[in-house]
Amino acid sequence: MDTTTSPPSTTTAAVRARGLTKTYGSGEAAVHALAGVDVDFAAGEFTAIMGPSGSGKSTLMHLLAGLDSATSGQAVLGSTEITGMDDRALTRLRRERIGFVFQSFNLLPMFTAEQNITLPLELAGAKVDREWFDTLTTTLGLADRLTHRPSELSGGQQQRVAVARALIARPDVVFADEPTGNLDSRSGAQVLSFLRRSVRELGRTIIMVTHDPSAAAYADRVVLIADGRIAGDITDPTPESVLAGLDALRSLDDLPAVVR
């Protein structure tokens, strides 16, 4: 693994979860979306989270990113505990240390690509680092699309704009929830390879939720989740090893059904 440009904290975890639980509703109707999750995500690493639908992947990511509050347990970003932070602190955290890429791009339709990319800096009132901006846009192949509005961009281009937006403020971690879910395989591959390059060459930390084994194969590591618990871990995944891991989960999953 190429770590020459990585920050010195490479060895420490960028994100940690300890006994993280999330329960929706209460009593009879209670849904335990997360039932005590302990997991570390190393800095400078590209991690994929996988698992069956409804297993709690998105929930985990929301809690780690401070978008939602945990029922119990801890979520820690670097050395900052984010569970229990108030909204103001969380907003600052998201602004400065976290980036997001969404499945449905979520660009602002009234702004151009460039305005969308620099929006996080504007929100923070920070200056745009032109060099970094150019690096991002040229690597993402957006240089000649900067004055276009989202409605004039293809899905893949939109998602690349979203990736640039997530990286512009040099956040500690980028969370991506099914970033290729709405893209065809070619556009998806472009986005994924850029995500991997940004980890390898630009020293970013990325945590990505995905259903696609070949997408997961771009990651350095795959964390498997089932029924709100960590159910496995695959390092240096290939599409085949991921599929195998998922199959193992599925058979695990099917077991109770058979018993029942």
């Binding site: 909204d87 907003t91 600052r92 979520n106 996080p120």
Partner: peptide, 16 residues
Amino acid sequence: RRESATLRAIGLSRRQ
């Protein structure tokens, strides 16, 4: 709603 949520996610404060 979605846009507001996106903005909040990327760092727009409630007050803003």
